[in-house]
Amino acid sequence: MKENDSALKRDLKSIGTKDLFILFRDDRDLEIRNELIKRHMYITEILAKKYINKGIEYEDIYQVASLGLIYAIERFDVDKGFEFSSFATPTIIGEIKKYFRDKGWSVRVPRRIQELSKKINMAKAKLQQDLQRIPKVSDIALYLNVSEEEVIEAMEASQVYTPKSLDVTYDASGDDKDIQLQDIIGRDDKTFDTIENKDFINMCLKKLNEVEIKIVNDRFFDNKTQIQVAEELNVSQMTVSRMEKKIIKKFRKELSKLNEI
């Protein structure tokens, strides 16, 4: 039997798909698996194309679908009598949807919100047909048995699913030229951080004694070593180290209070 199997492997293209699956089941040979992949890549291509223009590059979707095909081939039980395409399709689609669920949002959104967003999209289509008008937030909330706040939260979160390019152009009314999104989007002002940090340090320094203030200035502003500071204070380097840790602890305590506000 082994000699027959070896002969069959040498001419895989001439073997029927069912017999090929039986061979793969028996010895899990990678060469046989690769042949099965080649024969069924059309399924991957068909399913991947259904997700074009959904916010993720087609090449990425195709790769995920191909991985799903491999999983399906490895898990397929030819003895159960099912068509492989019927078995592979939900497996591949499952991998694609999982990828969209994990990677398709430009900002990390809780799984609960992602799932609710999907339900809202389906509910809007159903309610618009039933009500013959665009459903209100209250209609969707009632239909899904959730609060209006949850519906609004999910609808706002869905805006990050497909981010807008900074090159998007808007018509500037009363102006000769259009405006790009990157020209009007807000930016963080580093000056604010500098001012906040300075205010915080000054506030903390007011709660330190003269020796502690000297240690802060010498160590963190004048870049002196602990040994240099110790010599100036006529104490041991270990004493300076302990005082430094004590000062940092005070700063952290003040910062924790600030974060609680």
Rank of each mutant, 00 (worst) to 15 (best):
L205H: 01
D188L: 11
D183A: 04
I215V: 03
D189N: 13
N217W: 02
N209W: 06
T191W: 12
D193G: 02
I179R: 06
D199T: 14
V211P: 09
D175I: 14
N197T: 10
K190F: 01
D178P: 15
N197F: 07
I215P: 12
G174H: 05
I185V: 13
L181W: 00
N202L: 11
K198C: 05
D176M: 15
I213P: 00
D193R: 03
K207Q: 13
D178C: 04
T194N: 11
E210T: 10
G186W: 09
T191G: 12
I185E: 01
D175Y: 15
D178Y: 09
I195A: 11
L208G: 04
L205N: 00
T191R: 05
R187L: 09
G174A: 14
D189Y: 11
D218F: 15
K198T: 12
I195H: 04
V211L: 08
Q182S: 14
I179P: 05
I179L: 05
V211D: 02
K206F: 02
D183E: 15
N197P: 03
K207G: 08
I179V: 15
D199R: 11
E196F: 01
K198P: 13
N209M: 06
I179N: 04
V216A: 02
N209T: 00
N202M: 07
I201T: 05
E210L: 10
K177P: 01
L208A: 04
I185H: 04
I213D: 01
I213A: 08
E196C: 11
N209S: 11
G186F: 07
I195G: 06
M203C: 03
K206P: 01
D188Q: 06
L208R: 03
N217P: 03
Q182A: 15
D189F: 05
L205Y: 03
I179T: 09
N202C: 07
K214Q: 07
L181C: 11
Q180I: 09
K207C: 03
N217A: 05
L181Y: 00
T191D: 07
T191Y: 12
M203G: 13
D199K: 15
K177D: 08
D183I: 00
L208M: 05
C204Q: 01
C204V: 08
D175A: 14
N217K: 12
G174L: 13
K206Y: 04
E212L: 05
K207N: 04
E196S: 12
N217D: 00
I213W: 05
V211S: 07
I185C: 02
Q180M: 14
Q180K: 15
I201C: 01
D193V: 09
N202E: 11
V216M: 06
F192K: 12
I215H: 12
K177N: 14
I201N: 01
K207D: 04
D183R: 08
D178H: 13
Q182K: 15
D189M: 15
D199P: 13
D175P: 08
D176Q: 13
N197K: 09
I195E: 12
Q182W: 10
N217F: 00
N202I: 08
D218R: 12
F192C: 05
K214V: 08
I215Q: 02
D188M: 10
N197Y: 06
I185F: 01
